[in-house]
């Protein structure tokens, strides 16, 4: 595999917080149309990696290339428009807005009305609102959250909020979807629902997915490839079966046996 086949390429990314290296020369590639899982023990740098890709952190060294752009040099607010969306480990919804408005807010990058047209709310702006509302309703149907359409998300239970957040990421119509622990803190039933949604997104829309997850059984079931981080370094990469048998991975998870 050459680098050019990669959809997203992470090259020698190094991120320091003060003197601590959160990520140390991490490189890997994400191919178009795969589910890649990033796993590792707590504090391994998984979320830091995702934060670097989504432009939330700026690594000191290295490059992250996506569709010909270097994400480490792209202004944060322009990354979403390139076709990249993410969810957060600690849900980061707009808590004062309804489910519907949260998803509509994510249509920001796809809407063309300028602020003056918004203020006049006539003609084009009005038609655009309805057109995007239609698209958002499709996502609401897909995620089975129609019953909470007009509920303020601050009042929703945790599992539903996770689902709304996934919906908000989908409303961006991303080509690459980054999911930070989409099933953390869920019960088995909720996890199965979420896994079903993720697989549906992947199969129906061909969205490339990078996810961080702690549930190993689930990771091994749904991902095509796995990248393992430990103490900020990549220690293994490969198919779930390869990774499962890797000495270093077993060592990182279980310690000296």
């Amino acid at each position: 595999m050459t680098a050019s086949e990669n959809f997203l390429t992470v090259e020698d990314v190094t991120l320091y917080f003060g003197g601590n290296a959160a990520l140390c020369e991490v490189s890997f590639g994400v191919r178009r149309g795969e589910i890649l899982a990033i796993i590792g023990p707590n504090g391994a740098g998984k979320t830091s990696m995702l934060n670097c890709i989504s432009g939330f952190y700026r690594p000191q060294h290295g490059r992250i290339r996506f569709k010909g752009h270097d994400l480490t040099k792209t202004p944060t607010h322009k990354i979403a428009a390139l076709g990249l969306a993410r969810t957060f480990q600690n849900i980061a919804l707009y808590t004062g807005l309804s489910t519907l408005d949260n998803l509509m807010a994510a249509r920001h990058i796809h809407m063309r009305q300028n602020s003056l047209q918004s203020i006049l709310y006539w003609g084009y702006a009005r038609r655009e609102e309805v057109a995007h509302r239609r698209r958002v309703e499709e996502i609401i149907d897909f995620l089975e959250i129609a019953h909470i359409r007009k509920t303020i998300v601050g009042a929703l239970p945790y599992g539903l909020r996770k689902r709304v957040e996934l919906g908000r990421a989908l409303a961006l119509e991303p080509e690459l979807l980054l999911l930070d622990e989409p099933m953390a803190g869920m019960n088995v039933e909720e996890k199965e629902d979420m896994a079903r949604f993720i697989l549906d997104i992947y199969e129906r829309q061909g969205t490339t997915i990078v996810l961080i997850e702690h549930d190993m059984g689930l990771v091994m079931d749904i991902s095509d490839r796995v990248v393992v981080l430990d103490f900020g370094q990549k220690i293994a990469e490969g198919t779930p079966d390869e990774v499962k048998r890797d000495e270093k991975v077993i060592h990182a998870y279980l310690g000296d046996a």
């Binding site: 939330f56 919804l93 920001h108 918004s118 702006a125």
Partner: peptide, 23 residues
């Protein structure tokens, strides 16, 4: 009730997420 207002509210409710969502 329009794009402008939702962008403003997203700045209020979660400015970090808003930026990652293109605002």
């Amino acid at each position: 009730r329009s794009r402008l207002g939702r962008a403003l509210i997203s700045v209020r409710d979660n400015d970090l997420a808003a930026e990652l969502l293109g605002v």
